[in-house]
C-alpha cells in the first residue's frame, strides 16, 4: 500500500504545483489546497501505515495495546490540517479583496507594489 500512497502523494504535489503555476488566482487557491493535502498525507504516510489499530487505550487499561499506530505523526497532521484551513481561507478571502481592489485576477498583472 505504501507504493500507492507514495504515488498519490506525488500526484497531489504535481497537481498542486501545476495549479500554482497558472495565472488565475482561482487556480492558485486550488493549488494551495491540494499542496496542503499532499503535505499532510506525506507526514502521515512516512509515520507508518497501520490498519485498524488506533492509539486508544481501553477502559481501565494502563496503556494502549502494543502495535497501535504511532500517535505522534497523527498529532502533527491534525495541527497541520487546522492551520492549513486557516491559511487557505484567509488566502481565499485575500485573493478576493485583491481582485476587487485591482480589478484583475491575473497574477502576472500583480507585479507592482504601487496601485
Amino acid at each position: 500500500m505504501l507504493i500507492f500512497m507514495a504515488i498519490l502523494i506525488g500526484v497531489l504535489y504535481s497537481t498542486g504545483v501545476y495549479l500554482m503555476l497558472r495565472r488565475n488566482v482561482v487556480k492558485l487557491i486550488f493549488g494551495l489546497f491540494l499542496l496542503g493535502h499532499a503535505a499532510n498525507l506525506l507526514i502521515f504516510t512516512v509515520g507508518g501505515l497501520v490498519r485498524a489499530r488506533p492509539p486508544l487505550a481501553a477502559v481501565g487499561a494502563d496503556a494502549p495495546p502494543p502495535d497501535v499506530a504511532d500517535p505522534l505523526p497523527q498529532a502533527l497532521v491534525l495541527t497541520a490540517i487546522v492551520i492549513g484551513f486557516a491559511l487557505t481561507s484567509f488566502f481565499a478571502v485575500l485573493a478576493k479583496r485583491v481582485f476587487l481592489a485591482t480589478g484583475t485576477d491575473d497574477t502576472d498583472a500583480l507585479k507592482s507594489t504601487e496601485s
Binding site: V26, L49, R51, P54, V77, L78, V93, K96, D105
Partner: peptide, 30 residues
C-alpha cells in the same frame, strides 16, 4: 483505514468548512 479516527473527523469537518468558504468567495471572482 489507517487507524487515525481523529484525523478523519477533523479532515471531513474542515473540508466542509473550506468548501463553504470557497463557494462564498468564488462567486465574487471572475
Amino acid at each position: 483505514f489507517f487507524s487515525a479516527p481523529d484525523l478523519a473527523l477533523t479532515q471531513v469537518m474542515i473540508e466542509v468548512l473550506s468548501v463553504v468558504i470557497l463557494v462564498m468567495v468564488l462567486h465574487r471572482l471572475p
